[in-house]
Nucleic acid binder design. Structure first.
Length: 352
DNA sequence: CATGCGTGGAT
DNA sequence: TATCCAAGCAT
């Protein structure tokens, strides 16, 4: 009756990875692991998981933290709204539930940044409730097994896979089952060349029997990434730099970066577009970097960095001066961190 | 429902 | 080198 579930559990017992969040059932730690791993590979997320829990060991330490600290721990991981939502959610849980994690699926869904997948993951792993945690791995596995042609992301597919997994997930150890599905799909039923030879489910697989493994899941048409041209200007008097906290409604919300101009083509704008009036001390362009091509999921960034020397830092709205030493405590986009590190290395040899 | 949100590793 | 993507979610 439930061959697929049994085979998955059997496979999991013998092949599961020894990951840190597999050793705990504390909903807080499970929650953190799920948010870290959202759209993120295990190899990339694992150090962030450790660092985060070391800095914020429980819901109270997280709730009491400064937002800036939470962002700083998240620096370099991407999708920074996750950090913002974690912090906001921790405060919400402390306030509404006195810091005790809700164990009801519906209440978990009310938490900012917790959707159907994470709610099911927490409910099943931390509270042993049989909610199917259906992520990208699960969609790939079950569309192949059952030959489901519905498009990834469609509500029809969500409904259909939920129906199927609901009939398979065991009442006992549903958390193990959910993790079995994900581990199995990420190790055996992989996106590119699935290991069908060694697959214990090969006898049940529609895709394999029709030699159509890579036809599933059916992906939505992808649009071409938009180009975006950003030119950064590092106004420096040798001691301080002009920086700002980025506003909402754009990439890298609440992170820091430098004065910049943007244009719709590769033609490079000039830094004095930023400075309305002539500055008595004048400016010296000391260095202009090559164009750095930065590929994001939905846009391609073409970025340059210009070092602008001056005796007195110009006044630009929303920007303020910070000493070079203080910069290390602030959260930066990875792109900017890389440049700052390179800059720091070069300046330690050649005196600026 | 379509779109925006990051990063670094695999191919 | 260019493309694709990896344990989603909010809007």
């Amino acid at each position: 009756m439930n061959k697929i579930g049994d085979e998955l559990i059997r496979w999991y017992r013998e092949n599961k990875r020894d990951l840190p969040w597999r050793r705990v059932h504390d909903p807080y730690e499970i929650w953190i692991s799920e948010v870290v791993l959202q759209q993120t590979r295990v190899t990339q997320g694992i150090t962030y998981y450790h660092n985060f829990l070391k800095k914020f060991p429980n819901i109270f330490t997280l709730a009491e933290a400064e937002t800036e600290e939470v962002y700083k721990i998240w620096q370099g991981l991407g999708y920074y709204s996750r950090a913002r939502n974690l912090h906001q959610a921790a405060k919400f849980i402390v306030e509404k539930y006195a810091g005790s994690f809700p164990d009801e699926y519906a209440k978990l869904l009310e938490i900012k940044g917790v959707g159907h997948y994470i709610a099911a993951a927490i409910a099943s792993i931390a509270f042993a409730q049989p909610y199917p945690a259906i992520d990208g791995n699960a969609y790939r596995l079950f569309t192949r097994l059952f030959g489901i042609e519905l498009k990834l992301g469609s509500s029809a597919l969500k409904k259909e896979v939920l129906r199927i997994v609901s009939g398979i997930i065991p009442q006992k150890s549903p958390g193990d089952f959910n993790q079995a599905v994900m581990d199995f799909a990420s190790i055996v039923c992989t996106p590119k060349s699935p290991d069908c030879i060694n697959c214990p489910l090969s006898g049940y697989c529609f895709a394999l029997s029709n030699n159509r493994q890579t036809d599933f899941p059916v992906k939505p048409l992808k649009r071409k990434p938009k180009d975006r041209f950003i030119n950064y200007y590092l106004f420096s008097d040798g001691k301080k730099l002009l920086i700002r906290k980025r506003k909402s409604g754009d990439i890298w919300e609440n992170l820091y970066d430098f004065p910049n101009t943007e244009s719709s083509n590769a033609e490079q704008p000039r830094f004095y577009d930023l400075v309305s009036e002539n500055h008595p001390c004048g400016y010296t362009v000391k260095f202009v970097s090559e164009i750095i091509r930065h590929q994001l999921t939905h846009q391609t960034l073409f970025v340059t960095f210009s070092e602008i020397g001056c005796n007195i830092l110009p006044k630009i709205e929303d920007f303020h001066a910070e000493s070079l030493k203080h910069l290390g405590n602030l959260p930066w986009p990875r792109l900017i961190t890389r440049y700052l590190e390179k800059r720091d290395k070069e300046q330690s040899t050649a005196n600026y």
